[in-house]
């Protein structure tokens, strides 16, 4: 019985090694599988993966409206205080009611680790990860960004 197990073990080992070698052999002969991108050379044709995280941006539609209610869920979710939301109160023209809205969505790119937690926390899907990644600037203050566009307001119907 010992001998049978011994021989079985040897054959099992050879089989598993051969499986591994078949995989690497496949990659060796199929050069189109190569995923390396020669970045500065192919800047125009660069193919980034769908889930690549470059920086946080706020989604604005063609009417310069966004979906941010100023709930600060993203600010609370951020592990290293990258996001700071300054809120204000808008007065509704028809009813005269006060409504909370964002004044400035401050985003500190220099602190961001691109962990995606703010995007997951957002209840209205107002922010997303963009694919731009060339962030180098000569002055650190340029990395502190205001995400909501000038004059933008919240889209009607988003609560």
């Amino acid at each position: 019985m010992f001998l049978v197990n011994y021989i079985k073990e040897v054959f099992g080992a050879i089989k598993s090694l051969a499986t591994g070698m078949r995989r690497t052999g496949y990659y060796f002969t199929h050069h189109k599988e190569i995923i390396t991108q020669q970045y500065p050379d192919n800047r125009d044709t660069l193919q980034l993966p769908e889930r690549f995280r470059g920086e946080v941006v706020m989604i604005h539609d063609e009417n310069n409206e966004h979906a941010c209610t100023g709930c600060t869920a993203c600010e609370l979710a951020c592990p290293n205080a990258t996001i700071k939301i300054v809120t204000k109160f808008d007065v509704d023209e028809e009813t005269g009611k006060k409504k909370k809205a964002i004044d400035t969505f401050v985003y500190h790119l220099e602190l961001c680790t691109f962990c995606n937690l703010c995007i997951e926390a957002c209840p209205t899907g107002a922010i997303k990860m963009d694919q731009t990644f060339e962030h180098s600037v000569f002055d650190r203050s340029k990395l502190t960004k205001k995400l909501n566009h000038d004059g933008s307001k919240i889209r009607a119907g988003v609560e």
């Binding site: 690497t24 990659y27 060796f28 599988e33 190569i34 995923i35 390396t36 020669q38």
Partner: peptide, 10 residues
């Protein structure tokens, strides 16, 4: 080169 191609690199 061999290692690169086997690891799907250039």
């Amino acid at each position: 080169k061999v290692s690169a191609y086997m690891q799907v690199r250039l």
